[in-house]
Design a protein around this nucleic acid. Sequence first.
DNA 1: TTCGGTACTTACCTTCAGGTAAGGGTGGAG
DNA 2: CTCCACCCTTACCTGAAGGTAAGTACCGAA
Lengths: 133, 133
Amino acid sequence: MAAGARRGPYICGIDAGMDVVTGKWKSLILWELTNYGTRRFGELRRGLPGVSEKMLVQHLREMEEDGLVHREIYREVPPRVEYSLTPDGASLNEALSALGTWGQQRVKRLAAEGALVEAPPPGLRTGGAGGAA
Amino acid sequence: MAAGARRGPYICGIDAGMDVVTGKWKSLILWELTNYGTRRFGELRRGLPGVSEKMLVQHLREMEEDGLVHREIYREVPPRVEYSLTPDGASLNEALSALGTWGQQRVKRLAAEGALVEAPPPGLRTGGAGGAA
DNA sequence: TTCGGTACTTACCTTCAGGTAAGGGTGGAG
DNA sequence: CTCCACCCTTACCTGAAGGTAAGTACCGAA
């Protein structure tokens, strides 16, 4: 997808929207930037546990190219780069919020069913509920 | 993704929602079933130009497993199978409609910019505009 | 008897998104 | 003089998503 054969003829709007969010970390990057407004490269890296530097740079570049994020470079002694959402990125995030709500409800539903199916052991611990939204 | 390590611990709702729509043809299948209500296997195949039978079956099975589509089998002389959206599938499609709108606006924006950048030849034909929405 | 249409299944192969690991240029700390 | 943190870049590799193609079981039409 990375600046290759992307932006092919889209069948419908969802198709076009998906193209821009497709990528393991893109929705999470969007999430981070929405919550914090502005984040440095290192902050994003630490905020997305498991992401590799290469993928983070790659996704950020693609999203910048797609007009979703703004990249501000401060030529200081230790170089500083700040990422933030453009208006397009912010509106995309709003468009995704409905999907986020749907996903949360789905997680709830799965948890409820799972609790019935998996026969919950008495002393089970909640672990990481994950619902960071 | 196919019934493997999916449904991992989600970071946020968007994450959980994306998991279910990830797949080259899933959003298009959703689109088809939303527009037509009920479609047979062959109709879907013909409605999604370029899809292979294997991928169509695979995606339909995953979406059925995810509770998005309903599969009705009619044991007739030439076997007939009809696919339709479940309530969950329909609500997912509604949740995606915002993304679809965003995508359409993006396509429009790109077309407008592209028209400026690419110096449109006088006799260009519209070809397939693609905006089937 | 072969062809075509229904809805798949199976095996094999290609492609590419994503992961791993190392380097690079700068300056400050130890 | 070495190490570290910053923000990347580059090269290489793996695994899974997706594509290709053939086979299955049934029946009607030609």
